[in-house]
Design a protein around this nucleic acid. Structure first.
Lengths: 214, 214
DNA sequence: TGCACTCAGTGCAAGGGTGCACTTAGTGTA
DNA sequence: TACACTAAGTGCACCCTTGCACTGAGTGCA
């Protein structure tokens, strides 16, 4: 079990260098409107060698994905915050649905999507890289949400939870696409109202298969 | 032969860490009035491990001496600046004497001594450590001055140069002692006048053995 | 005077950063 | 279409930092 002792300097430096690489990537992305930089530029900015970049991350895409993870962390954080304030569910499918849907409603998903859009930059001519990264980021967020749901509902059927989270997050990806095409990425009242409408549609659609047994 | 290419990151980091240790020592000395800190405190301040401190310096005393070296560097720098502006000597003893004495006269030795005093701190009850470090620092400065004198006068007799530099620098140590006892370490007009008087006495005293042959 | 403690300094092994030569993929141009 | 170039990513060896257990010196106290 992890002790609470101060990590040693090796661990501290490792975390620091990894953090410096992420901060450097964020900075370059902010300056350039997207991940338009080389490994050499990133390494320079982070004040590490280019080999070190690959010691910490498997690829440049992995770095971009990690930044997207951070953008989508709001969904996980909101779930955690939400369920803390709710009575414990009974592990049933409908109970889990209620927890997750409440969280998806209160989480600032439009804000997260806007952050991700800034990270990924203007889609290229065929946008395949951006779409691939975006999908992977949502998938990772879904995995982390699933972990939290199962932690919260240890008696739940794992397959049930996996299917539920999968269908909800896949639905989120779909309605995000609709939302962007319908109103663009707008964080004002109009944009948020449109988002809530689309999300409502998603949740109603998925809920119908999740009514409490009676 | 050394190329002019940019040093690699290994070299850069090594120099940076060594510099951080020296800067940390300077900071702690400034705050505490002398070298009154532990290796752990120095390492913390420099943001390196205590082992790393000893990778760069043989001992704490070595760090203090390096700071003293920097304080006394003014003597070497002044010699280099002085001889650049003077016609080349003929490598004779009197010519070397003129170069060195001119430099000792123009160099801010009182300032250097004051810096060293700040580095070494208030002498302890028997002051042996401070005196030892001070003497070692002057000795190292003499060695560096000798190197410059020989570089400047490649045809000079090495023993002659060594004896000359040795007697002058040993003389400087002696008159610094007198100066401190007579007026204290004062950088005002009175202190500087006293210093110039003592230095003049030293140079006249040593010069008598160095008249140009005629 | 003996003991316990602190601190400087050390040897050696482990970990992480770095250098460098390399392969591969993508791109632009003649 | 072939070639040259750039850039991402890789394997491996080297270097420097770090961890840690240790010794020895100095100090304070019972």
């Amino acid at each position: 079990m992890l002790s609470s002792k101060t990590p040693d300097r090796r661990t501290t430096l490792k975390v620091r260098h990894r953090g410096a690489i992420l901060a450097a990537a964020r900075g370059l992305i902010d300056e350039r409107g997207g991940p338009y930089f080389t490994v050499d530029e990133l390494a320079d900015r982070a004040d590490v060698s280019r080999r070190t970049v690959f010691n910490h991350f498997a690829s440049l895409d992995e770095i971009v994905l990690t930044l997207c993870d951070e953008a989508l962390e709001v969904i996980i954080d909101d779930f955690i915050a939400t369920v803390v304030a709710m009575p414990a569910g009974d592990g049933s499918r409908s109970s889990m649905f209620d927890e997750i849907s409440h969280s998806l409603t209160t989480a600032d998903i439009p804000g997260a999507v806007e952050s991700m859009a800034r990270i990924l930059g203007e889609p290229g001519s065929d946008a395949s890289r951006e779409q691939t990264l975006s999908a992977r980021a949502f998938t990772r967020a879904a995995d982390r949400l699933l972990d939290e749901v199962l932690r919260r509902n240890p008696t739940a059927d794992v397959l049930d939870a996996e299917l539920l989270v999968g269908s909800l997050m896949n639905g989120v990806i779909v309605v995000v696409g609709h939302w962007i095409r319908e109103v663009g990425i707008r964080l004002d009242g109009t944009g948020r109202a449109a988002w809530q409408g689309l999300l409502g549609t998603l949740l109603s659609s998925v809920r119908s298969g999740y009514m409490p047994l009676s």
